[in-house]
Simulated scan of single mutants.
Amino acid sequence: MSELVLNATHNIELNAHDSLDVLLNMWLHGKSKTTQSSYSKIAYKFIDFVQLPLTQIGLNHLQSWLDTIEGSDNTRKTYASVIKSLFTFTHNLGLMSVNPGKALKVGKPKDCLNERILTESEVMLMIHQESNHRNKLILKTLYYCGLRVSELCVLKWKDASVRTNGGQFTVYGKGQKTRTVLVPPSLWQELIQLKAEPDESVFSSRKKADNAHLDRTQVFRIVKNAAKRIGIDNPSPHWLRHSHASHSLDRGCPIHLLSNSLGHASVSTTSRYLHSRPEDCSSLYLIN
């Protein structure tokens, strides 16, 4: 790892005894643990590649690094967005006179959302063929409540409340936003059979100390194994969230209600699901 040396306009300098951690901790302060982990990994990959102090990095270095990124266009876009954010933050602090990330352009990738939406039959088969009771409830909660995997992992019983018909979870999600998600009565009746003390996890890990949260890798494994049983390769827990959104719209859910339930920043984000599986198209009007 190359040492970071920042010669700032405010005469701030990180010397040889300081590391990239100093800047990253400031940049990522207040973000979720999941975001901190993924963003810092990308930042370190970039610094390892360029082997230069931040003040010596230019647009050409950013472009050269992006050319080495393997994977989909969406992956490249994510990596570019992360590094652009880092440079914007550093520039705003006054630690760089020029922000090279501002000029970095990445083409808009193909929207492949439709490829990550399961059919209702596929979701039901995944759930039905899961023999482990806890894992079955994890699949059901991801799908019926439309939760992100990070949200599911940190659920505690104090976040759950009974209602006249079913129950609800108070979810603290992406962007430090809190929302309320209703739990269908049938699922609620199954979940409360697991109920424990308020500070205990709704879904606990069996491999760690008592009351330890599940981690993301465990949930990914549960979903992957469930999908593999029905012939679907390499899904993620987010596919169940995508499926929740698409199926809800198919069944007549108002888009603003779905947007609130999913915790989207705006309805425009939710509208992607309408575009991925439209009910109408001009092509249908040309058939005799």
Results as ranks from 00 to 15, higher is better:
236 S>L: 08
245 A>K: 00
32 S>M: 05
208 K>E: 09
61 H>N: 11
97 S>L: 12
226 A>T: 04
63 Q>F: 11
104 L>D: 10
111 D>C: 05
286 L>Y: 06
128 H>P: 02
105 K>T: 04
209 A>Q: 14
115 E>G: 09
229 R>E: 10
65 W>V: 05
28 L>N: 10
118 L>W: 06
59 L>D: 07
218 Q>Y: 03
244 H>P: 08
92 N>L: 15
240 L>I: 09
131 S>I: 03
8 A>P: 04
207 K>V: 10
230 I>L: 00
169 F>V: 00
288 N>L: 09
7 N>E: 05
115 E>P: 10
76 R>F: 15
80 A>S: 15
19 S>Q: 14
15 N>H: 13
285 Y>S: 14
231 G>K: 04
103 A>E: 03
5 V>R: 09
80 A>W: 05
198 P>C: 03
128 H>Y: 11
259 S>E: 03
133 H>L: 12
35 T>G: 04
262 L>C: 02
187 L>T: 07
110 K>P: 03
264 H>N: 07
183 V>E: 04
24 L>K: 09
284 L>M: 12
52 L>M: 13
180 T>Y: 10
91 H>M: 14
115 E>R: 14
16 A>R: 15
175 G>S: 12
75 T>H: 14
184 P>W: 04
199 D>P: 00
128 H>E: 11
172 Y>R: 04
26 M>E: 11
52 L>A: 09
32 S>R: 05
113 L>M: 10
279 E>I: 08
176 Q>N: 14
186 S>K: 08
35 T>F: 05
104 L>K: 13
247 H>C: 01
226 A>C: 05
189 Q>T: 13
276 S>P: 11
19 S>I: 12
161 S>N: 11
156 K>C: 03
234 N>R: 02
193 Q>W: 01
49 F>Y: 15
178 T>L: 00
111 D>E: 12
195 K>M: 01
57 I>S: 12
96 M>T: 10
93 L>I: 14
158 K>A: 02
165 N>R: 14
175 G>C: 13
78 T>C: 10
108 K>R: 13
244 H>E: 05
212 A>S: 13
16 A>M: 11
64 S>D: 15
118 L>T: 07
148 R>V: 01
259 S>Q: 08
90 T>D: 08
189 Q>A: 13
24 L>A: 14
67 D>C: 10
272 R>N: 08
203 F>V: 02
214 L>Y: 10
64 S>Y: 13
160 A>F: 12
210 D>Q: 15
116 R>S: 10
120 E>C: 12
72 S>F: 14
194 L>W: 04
272 R>P: 02
182 L>K: 07
224 K>Q: 05
104 L>C: 13
19 S>R: 15
242 H>K: 07
1 M>H: 08
69 I>A: 11
83 I>Q: 08
124 M>C: 06
287 I>Y: 15
109 P>Y: 12
56 Q>G: 07
145 C>G: 01
128 H>D: 11
12 I>V: 09
143 Y>G: 05
242 H>E: 06
68 T>H: 08
48 D>V: 02
105 K>E: 01
192 I>F: 00
222 I>A: 07
226 A>G: 02
254 P>Y: 00
47 I>Y: 07
257 L>Q: 09
15 N>A: 13
34 T>D: 09
28 L>P: 10
152 L>C: 02
252 G>V: 00
84 K>T: 08
64 S>R: 15
222 I>K: 06
48 D>A: 09
241 R>H: 01
80 A>Q: 11
202 V>Y: 02
26 M>D: 13
37 S>I: 09
260 N>D: 05
66 L>D: 07
178 T>F: 00
251 R>Y: 05
